[in-house]
Computed example of a mutant assay.
Amino acid sequence: MRLLECVAEHRYGAPAKQLARETRLALPTAYHLLRTLVHEGYLRREKGLFFLGEAAERLSSSGAEQKRRSTVADALARWRDAIGAPVYYAMYRDGEIEIMCVSDAPGTPAVEEWADFRETGHAHAIGQCLLSQLDEGARRDHLARYPVSPVTPYTVRDAASLSRRLERTRRTAPVTERQEYALGVVCAAIPISVGTTAAAVALSLPARQADRLLPAAERLQTEMGLLLGSLAISISI
Rank of each mutant, 00 (worst) to 15 (best):
L33C: 12
L227K: 02
T36L: 15
L59W: 03
R21I: 14
K67I: 12
R44T: 14
W79C: 05
A160M: 13
R35S: 10
I237W: 05
A173V: 11
R139L: 02
R157L: 00
C129L: 11
L227Y: 03
S61R: 12
Y12S: 12
R24E: 02
A85M: 06
D94G: 14
Q18V: 15
P153M: 02
I99L: 15
V148M: 03
D158A: 07
R165M: 08
I237G: 10
Y181E: 03
A232E: 14
G48V: 02
I97V: 13
M91G: 00
P86G: 06
S62C: 08
P86K: 07
V186N: 07
R69P: 00
E180R: 10
V7K: 03
P150F: 02
R164K: 09
L43M: 12
R178E: 07
A216E: 06
Y181K: 06
A123P: 06
V111L: 12
V87Q: 09
K17E: 15
T155F: 10
L43N: 11
Y154D: 07
P150H: 04
Y181G: 08
A110N: 05
E40K: 09
I235S: 02
E98I: 10
K67R: 14
Q179K: 13
E167V: 07
T71L: 15
D94W: 04
D104Y: 04
R78V: 12
P174H: 02
E119W: 00
A159H: 06
D74G: 04
T23N: 10
V72I: 12
D158I: 11
R171Y: 01
E112H: 08
Q209L: 14
V175A: 00
G41Q: 07
S103D: 11
R69S: 01
A8W: 07
L143G: 01
A217Y: 05
K67P: 02
E119V: 01
P215A: 09
M224T: 03
G184Y: 04
P15C: 13
E98D: 02
G95L: 01
S62L: 09
A188S: 11
A8T: 06
V156A: 01
L205F: 01
V156F: 04
E119N: 00
R44Y: 05
S132K: 04
E96K: 12
Q209N: 13
E22L: 14
G63V: 10
R118S: 05
R69H: 07
L134A: 01
R45M: 13
G107R: 12
A200T: 06
A75V: 07
R11P: 06
L213F: 05
S234T: 05
Y154I: 00
L43K: 11
A20S: 15
S61F: 01
R78K: 11
V194P: 01
E40G: 10
S132D: 04
M224S: 02
R93I: 03
A75W: 08
I190Q: 06
E218D: 12
I237D: 05
E9N: 09
K67V: 13
F117L: 09
A199Y: 00
I97K: 03
E54I: 08
R93A: 01
S103H: 10
S60I: 04
V72M: 08
G225M: 03
E180L: 10
K17R: 15
G63A: 14
V148T: 03
L25V: 06
E112T: 12
